[in-house]
Design a protein around this nucleic acid. Sequence first.
DNA 1: CAGCAGTAAACTGTCGACAATCGGGAGAGG
DNA 2: CCTCTCCCGATTGTCGACAGTTTACTGCTG
Lengths: 249, 249
Amino acid sequence: MVLKTVDSLLKTDEDRETAQSARVIPMPVKPLQRAESLSSQVYREVERLVMSGQLEPGSKVNEYILAEQLGVSRGPVREATRALVQAGLLVAVPARGVFVRELSETEISENYDVRALLTGLMCARAAERRTDSVIAELNHLIVEMEEAIGQRAILAYYKANLAFHGLIAQVADHACSSRIYDDLIRETHFLRRSLHAPAQTNEEHRDMVAAIAAGDVERARRLGEEHVFHGKRRWLSSLKEDAAETKTI
Amino acid sequence: MVLKTVDSLLKTDEDRETAQSARVIPMPVKPLQRAESLSSQVYREVERLVMSGQLEPGSKVNEYILAEQLGVSRGPVREATRALVQAGLLVAVPARGVFVRELSETEISENYDVRALLTGLMCARAAERRTDSVIAELNHLIVEMEEAIGQRAILAYYKANLAFHGLIAQVADHACSSRIYDDLIRETHFLRRSLHAPAQTNEEHRDMVAAIAAGDVERARRLGEEHVFHGKRRWLSSLKEDAAETKTI
DNA sequence: CAGCAGTAAACTGTCGACAATCGGGAGAGG
DNA sequence: CCTCTCCCGATTGTCGACAGTTTACTGCTG
């Protein structure tokens, strides 16, 4: 691990590896592939910080401080932030710096729209390429989500849900959709920390898998699309609730 | 103009502006906004080089040479290329450099798939938000394309076609779709230099505008989708022709 | 006490230089 | 003559430093 994580700075970093130690093993088992470039590591670390909420939307990302915390110079940090701006996680203001992107309600709404189409496409293709083992795995994930709902285990549900859609994407075998879908998911990461009507959502999952299992391509597409649109509706109603609450307060 | 274009290096660069010349006007009319960052300028210049075909798919982009040609240091060049990698125009190979991305047939096919969905979405929304002036402008562009086809003016057709889809995107007022659509178009830029069955394509344009003008949302969506899928079919058939030719040779 | 100007600190944008790594070519050996 | 190895040049990855701009603080004035 070349790059220090920001977390690790809070602890004493005692995990310094002495790679050049003792004997040189004739056939090294792992370190054959060179360490990833610092830019990429910084990219992933900043991505993690944003996704985990440690960097809140709208907050400023200071190059200098970040570079110091990660133990690298500003070069790689600048490269990483540039890429993250292009990826849509950050926004750059000339001569002011980069900030964690905050989405307007319109942008979130549009995000749902495109995700719906992509989900439909991937479900349709998944219905064409399904195998018994995949269907079994999807059903297993649905059960997992069911259990997570019963135990109010938000994180477990979140992970299983991610795995569910990830597996569909994998089976769909459509890299272009998959990539864009992942980008869109990342942009709206903060929405997924709170959950609305998970039971109903999981019911939709069941229907989707049934259509995929039956090989009903068009039905799978429609259910996939609707699944996301229903998510959008749930988000909208939660918005209205928030607005009502703030109004009554 | 701070940045030198690569083209300009072939000519003698005589257009050196002496910005600090003669008198200082008390109230400067234009230069109030500071020049764009070099990274952004390099970004656009490399993008232009790729789009125009001066940098062919698969060719290597040398940081040092590019920086020297543009008259900047390698820092901005690295930032720009990182962003372009994220944008999908370049690919980075660790410790080897960046190359102009070349798409496999599968990737191009998938590109069409997603573009079809987005075009459908934008046409549907355009049908909801149409105005008389927009319809008139769309019809005007169709006529322009018609004329370009008659005159075998590929470039004119290309530009009008771009304007046509751009106008629909603008009317659709769906930034998310629009952004992704543009990215996808850029990735497959090289396909649009050769044209297949433009007359038929323009006929589809007519139908699309008719549906949008009539406010028939679902029909507009379907025609928009099909328009791109027909483009995909035309591309596939041109592929087969190429394969047949190379086989007979 | 509030508002404004001036100054100083902080931060971004950019550059040149050094180190590490990869590819190609020369040379030796089979 | 072919192949493998070693070395060198070319190129990327990274760093520290400087310059210009923005921001924040301080002190002055109405």
